[in-house]
Amino acid sequence: MQKSLHLDPNKCTGCLQCEMACAWENHRSFTIAKSRIKVFTFHEPGRFVPYTCTQCDEAWCMMACPTDAIRLDPVTGAKVVLEPSCVGCKVCTIACPFGTINYVSDTGKVQKCDLCVGASGPACEKACPTGAITYVDADWTGLDKMRQWAGKTDTNPATV
């Protein structure tokens, strides 16, 4: 079974533990500038929204890459950047409709969320203190929302 990162803005407090966990996992540093997941603060409406790569099935970054440096990990479904092959041309950063693959000037390569390939699950999910980031059945990311609506379903209106 493949799994997906499931992000719930309503539970996010904007603490950035996920960003630090990501930076640590990939750069052995807490510097959030290196994180592959970002939490956005929308000040006016008072919302915190975590955002990262959704691992497109037909991944535009993968298709755009001229050096074949982005590969599918068949186990997790993640699109993974192969650093030795990446030449830092940044075409993928243009191709991605969501902005979730980005250049890292320190390394001269791009980086994106790879669901912490090789580890026992994404670091951001483990670090999230509020359950805003979960790692769930890729085919059932809507389950929680369905459950919420199901709970509101009235099967016998006559008795109300």
Partner: peptide
Amino acid sequence: LVTNGACFGCTIACGRISR
């Protein structure tokens, strides 16, 4: 109160966001 908000790295999140 709209929501609570956290400072950097805070797992308590006591901050108040109000409208």
